[in-house]
Each structure stands twice: as structure tokens, then as C-alpha cells.
Design a protein around this nucleic acid. Sequence first.
RNA 1: GGGCCAGUGGCGGAAUCGGUAUACGCGCACGCCUUAAGAGCGUGUGAGAUAAUAUCUCGUGUGGGUUCGAGUCCCACCUGGCCCACCA
Length: 900
Amino acid sequence: MGKQISFNHQKVESKWQKLWEEIGTYTPDIVKAKKAFYNLWMFPYPSAEGLHAGHAFSSTGSDVYGRFMKMKGYDVFQPIGYDAFGIHSENYALSINNHPKEMIARTTKYYEKQLKSLGHGYDWTRTVNTSEVDYYRWTQWLFAQMFKAGLAYRKAAFVNWCPSCKTVLADEQVIAGECERCGHKVETKELEQWFFRITDYADRLLGGLERIDWPEKIKIAQRNWIGRKEGINIEYKVKGRKEKIICWTSRPDTNFGATFIVLSPEHPFAQKLATKENTQKVKQYIKDSQEKTKEEREAEGREKTGVFTGSYAINDLNGKEMPIWISDFVLMEVGSGAVVGVPGHDKRDFEFAKRYKLPIIRVVVGSDNDKSPMTKIEQVQEEEGTMVNSGFLNGMNIAKAIGAMMDHIEKKGWGRKKTSYHLRDWLISRQRYWGPPIPMIYCEKCAQKSKSWFALKGISFKGVLHKDQSDWKHAGWYPEENLPVELPYLKNYQPKGTGRGPLAGHPKFYEVKCPHCGGTARRETDVSDTFLDSSWYFLRYPSVGIAESASSGSSSPAKRDDSATRTRHSAADFAWDPEITKRWLPVNLYFGGAEHAVLHLMYARFVTQVLYDLKHINFPEPFPRFFAHGLVIKDGAKMSKSRGNVVNPDEYIKKYGADTLRLYLMFMGPMDGYPDFRDTGIEGMRRFLERVWDLFVNNKDVILVEEKDSREVFVKMHQTIKKVTEDMEKFQYNTTISAIMEFVNLLREKAVYAESASSGSSSPAKRDDSATRTRHSASSYIRCAEWDEALLVLAQLLAPFASHLAEEVWVNVLGQKPSVHTSSWPSYTKEIAEKEEVTVAVQVDGKLRATLKLKAQNSKLKAEVVKAAKKEKNVANWLKGKETRKVVFIPGKLVNFVTK
RNA sequence: GGGCCAGUGGCGGAAUCGGUAUACGCGCACGCCUUAAGAGCGUGUGAGAUAAUAUCUCGUGUGGGUUCGAGUCCCACCUGGCCCACCA
């Protein structure tokens, strides 16, 4: 008997996990659900060696909320899947010398086992794997839609190239000059690539932020990344030449202080403007700078380099000649790739001017009133001040001067206002193997025709497709209509580093007929960015199994696709079912990491807006509510393999149980914090659960709660429900659990165990040797209803966290029908939850001198409280000989005698 | 360089609106139990003064301010973290 006290987590957990799956506890009626709640956790990529404690932390945070909503009466849908396509999985496969296809098959199995062992309430009947053809045919479909809408185009550009991953990268995927995946320094290469016109959506992505419930820091990150800035393109004539240089600036007010112009080495005029004697130097400089990586450019960073072209631009404002220089601190992708140098009011310009002894003119005087010539960088006035040496602007403040100057320049025809964005088009091609082949076909013959077509129209065609939809077919590119374009199994899938993907070595794959002229054409051999896979997965989940099952044909869904006969939105043959999508989307709560602020979260919003515009869905924002969880820290640092501080949840689940781990992870700290994982902490949590278990299984021996105690238990129960309910909504699980602990502590304190009549030496009463607990003979006391209710409530409050233990006691101890997870969340009465007796603080001049224990209603009466407070010896002492000038009274809380 | 966030016991962290700072847990100490150890249970635990569970002083990174009253609000600074970064 005595040994049975210990909670056998392995037995209990596996028992319920099996049963839940059998009876479909977490599989909602996807077609008919009335109160749909789509609770989504960012799916993981199954490339590493399984889930670590960080995954367990965030997925549990999401699961706890889903379970809570379920008990609140919602039809909760919690799907799970794998972001299994893409460079991260491929790199991992390469590192372990395994084919990604096999690696994925193995790791997804392991992930599934781990996720199940954590006891999460996922709907395992609807999973997604982005590397499976049934999924990626729609990723390809999405690409084709983008192209048809004029949102996918090719252009030659200076792009980020990772020499280690041997592929190009989007701007978002370059972190501080390094590859997001492998950490290798990124270089710049000029290549022709596929882009998505995300910049067309810049303003809408910005505007949409106002309407969604996201953490402010994520919104700010997106705003900064989009980086909308008002400015002006100023056109400068070049002395003695026909070229005009356009410089974008947000600070035209300082233009009277402009003393030079700097072009990016990649600027089309960079070489052209070099005078004869400078040509050699300029050529060399351009060549040198292009060989540098971004990192190198930056490392030399503050030490500016440059070369003079020999040409001069004219500042129309004052007719001054400005030497035109070339320097690699000016980036082609920013603004217009050319900068007007105002060294007095821009630190970088100042450094450049200093280095090459260019004149520095002050045109702004700041609040320090320094009007002296500028010789030190500290004097550079960037932020605020009053205009000087600036003609008609003199005396104006900066804000006013900017407006005045912009109007002036536009009126004179020297330039045009232009809003600039930091956001750039999404580079979507990858020269890799493990991804969806870009479903496009290129026909050289058609391309030649289109070149003449462009020539006819007077458009110089440089590989950039125009937005006008009629243009695309003239560039020789056609979207593949027979989807999917299956990724062939390649044994040697290693990236080549030639600027082309591994598929380029397989004529069987790329040799196709031109869908337009029937001639020999070539299929695109690059694959798409992995972030395209994850940009729409949330649309897929609810319809998994629905779209296919509605199909009557015997052929596989992959083969059924025939664009001519396909009705786009028929349930049988589309990525998502329109009715189900209406019911379940947008996602009600998205739970994930903040590190995706300008990656996945931005791309998913963009794709959703495009699909909304193309009328494939009826909502413009995929995630109206997003919660950004924090990270688990171990030994003071972020978990990582290289640090060797990765915590594998498996061993903890085995040793202490999933319930213990779940509770501990949620108790460590707030969900958006960075709590430290400790072994001693989890042991403490196991002890807590052991005490809870003890409370339940020995429940039948509790025979008494005294009148006073039963009331206390009852009140505490209502207080606990209130606290837990409120804090759950705010994802403050740590305080939720501490409230439950307090409740458990009280129950244990008040419990009185009977001498068991039936059992002998191993009776439960023996187990507890506390001197404070009294033992009574069973005959003289009765059980109270409050006690039984308290235990039911306790099981329910624990259910989102300790799902298995709660279920076990709910069914096998408390005799309820399964499942505690479908029972309705307990309610509380506000009046009962309010304390009956309160402690009122008594202060003299703001210092605590006594506390009063008063009945709640009395504590609200000023006269009563003041009277009682003055009676307190210590208060009287402090008031002696002083004149009370004022009495501050906060009903039910505090009284403060002011004598000063 | 820019943006955002945070500094509370030995540790993780509590503290709705400005109103008893340190809830809950870990750790530690002591006690009970035990032949012993462990487990379990109980008590204590911000610092200092003190015979004292009475009482007093100090105390939420530093310095100032507002207020009857500040962890919370304002100003300046210091430290740490995260994100972005030669963005014109």
C-alpha cells in the first residue's frame, strides 16, 4: 500500500496518450465545428538531433493555451508539421553524409515520438511535410500565381552569395554580413535571379501592422525593416557631359553644404565618368571593391577609401562644382546608389571629406550654439538645429527647411520627391537541390522574339520583367501548368558553386518543350527559398485530408492535376478547401519565436496579402494575434550544440515525466522571458506533483475539514480559479502555477486524515508524521462538500499543465467521465473570491507603523479604520506630540497619517 | 552608430491603478523520523541594531526629482541582453 503513493508517470502518461489518440480527443470536427479556435505553433524543421528543451518550452506554452481554450468551450484545432524542405535540412543532411530524403524520413519520425511524449494535444490526422509532393505542388502553384500576377520576375543584380552554402540569399537571410544558416561571410555577386515584388506591398505591410495584435517589438522590427522614409531624388548635371547623377536624400535642407558626390562602385556611371587620367585608378578601385565581401567592406568600415573620377557635378542651388568620387561605403542597393556629400552634417561624409581633404561647410547650428568651422567629428550636427549659410532657408529649423527645400527643388525641376524603403524585393532562387523546383520554363526562341518586341516598343530589356501582365510571355518565360514539377532523386545533390543548382546537371529534368512555340526549351533548375514553403503552411492544415478525400478519381492527387479542367476552388483539387478555410482562418493565436520577425512573419504576411488580392482567400492578415515566446537559457547562455548546453527533454520525460517537465518549463518564468533551466528546479516540481498525487489518492481518508477550514478552502478555491483564469489569458503561466501551489499547500494544511480502520501498519495515517496534524477517529466527523469540489477544481486547473495526472485522477480517483480536457473550465464567484478579512496598512508620514486585521466591510469605512489605527500602540507613539495635518485613506488597503 | 527591452534576496522569479517589496519555487540552516544515510515531514531564511517573535534603521543598478507615499512616474547616468546596422 505505502509504495503505491508514488506517481507512476510512465504508465499513466503512455496510457492516456494512447487513449486520447484512439478516441480522437484532439481531433475537432473540422467541417462542422461551431466555435473554431485555430491554435498554431510555428512548425519546426526536423534537421537537428531532435527537439531540445527550447522547443519543449515554446510548444508547451502553445499547448497549454490550446487546452485552456478547449476547456473554455472552443473547438480547438492544434496541428503540427515539419518545415522539412530547404537549405537548413539539406545542410544538416550534408553534414551527416546522408540523403535529405532519408534523413527527413528518420527525423520526422523521431520528432513525432518526442512531441507525442510531451503529451501535446495535436491533431495527428492533419499533418504537413513541406518536402512531400502533395504539399510542394502547391508551393509551386503559388510561384506560378506570383508570376502571372507580375509579382515574380527575373533580373540581374548584385546579390548576396554564400560561398559555403553555394547559393544566393535574400537580404533578410544575411545577419550582420553572415549567412543565416551557416554563419559564413557573405559575398556579393552579380547574377540573374528570381525575385518577388514584396516592395510593391511595402505600404500595405506597414499599414496592416496597425490592425494586428502583435508584440510591439515585432511590429517595430518590421517597420524598421520596411524602413519607409520620405525623401527626394535630386538630379545633378555633370560638367561638360550629358549624364545626370541622381542622388536620393532625406535631408535636402543641408544641400547648401554639399561639397562632393560619391558613387557606389556598382553605379552604372562609376567607370563612365572617369576622366582619361583617372580611368586606370577608377577601374582598379571598382575591381578591388567587388572582390571584397560585405564583411570586409565593413571591417575596413570606418576607414573610408575612395577614388576621384575627375568629373564634377553642379549644385544648381549655388552653381558650385562638386567633385565626383567613388567609394564603397556607398551601397548600390540603398537610395539611388549615389550620395551627395554634406560633411558638416553627416558623420560618414565628414570622415570621407577629412580623409580626402574636401571642404566642409556648416549649414546648421545646433543647440550648443557652436558656429565655429568644423574640424572634429564631434561637431557634426546631424539631428537638430537652425539653418545658416543656406540662402532662403536661413533661420528655419530643420523640419521646416526640409519641406521648404523639397518644394523649392521640385518647383525648379531639379528633382522629385521619392519615398524610399529599406525593404527590397525577395530573392527567391536558390542554387540548391532540396527544395521545390521553380516551376518555370525558358524558351530561347521566344526570348529572341521578345527582345525584338521590346526593341519595337523602345524598352531596353535587361532581364527585368515589367509589371504589366501582358509582358511576361515576351520574355521567353512560361509558368509550368502541369504541376507538380517533381524533384528527382539525385544521389549527388551537393551544391556546385557554379551559380547554378545541382538540377542543372540533369538534362532529363530540364529538357522540355516550349509550351508556347513547341520548340526546345529549358526548365528552371533553381529551387525556391525555404521561406516560401512556410509562407502558406497554415492555410494547408485544416484542409489536409479534406481536399483529397473529396476526390472521386482513383489516381493519385499529384497526377490528377490538369489545369484545363481544374476548377480552381473545388474542394477536390486545391490546396485548401474554401468552406473550411472560411471556418478556421485566419489563425486565432500564433505562437512562435521573435527571431522570425523580418523573415517568416514578414513573408507569410506578404503571401497572404497577395492571395487575398488574387481572391483565393478572404482575409489579408494570416495571424491577427501573435505571441512571441522567449528562450530557455542553460548555464547562463542560449542553448546550442557548439556550447554543449543543449537540454534534451527525452531524459527528463523518462525520469520525471512529461507532466513534471511541462509544469517546470511553464513555472521557470514568464513565457516571453529567458528563464534558466536547472535540474534542481525540475526535481522540486516532481516533488510538488508527488504531493498533489498524494493529496488525491489519499483523498478518501480525509474525513474532516472544520467549519472554519472548509470556508477557507472554499474561498481559496474561488480565488485560485480567478487568478489562474486571468493569468492564463496573459500567458503568465508561472504565476498561474504558483497560485495552484498555494491552493495545494492550503489543502494539505487543512486535510485531516482518519485512522484507517481497515488497514494495519501501513495505513495512510502512518505515512504522515507531522506533529501539527491531528488524527481523529472516523466516527466523530463528517466529510464536507467543499473538499470534494476543491479536488475536482484542482484537477481541472492542473489539466492544461499536468494533462496526464489530471486525467488519471479525474477518472480513476474522482470517478468522473473522461476527459478532464473536455470538461468545462471552472467558474468563480467574484464576491467569494474577495477576501473576507483584510489587512490594512497603517502609515505615519508614509512609513509603515502597524497593520490592522479587519473585516472586509469595515476596512472600507474611514472613520472605523482611523479609530482602530490610532488605538495601535506603535501608531500612537509615532503620533504623540505631532499635529496630524492630513489623513490619506485607501479603502481596504491603507491609512496614512501625515504630520509634516 | 540606430532601435527595443531589462537590472528586485545566494538563485529562477512575484508585486492589477503609485499604496504592507521579496508571493511561489530552488538552495541553505536547524529540527523530527532513521542504527545511519537518503527520502519524507516541520520550522526558519533581505541586511544591520537589539535580551526580544517588541521596536528601529537601511534596502528593488547609480544620482536627482515629483508625491502623504515610488520597484512602479519624470530627468540624467551606469551595466547587461536582443535585433538592426557605412540606409545617405
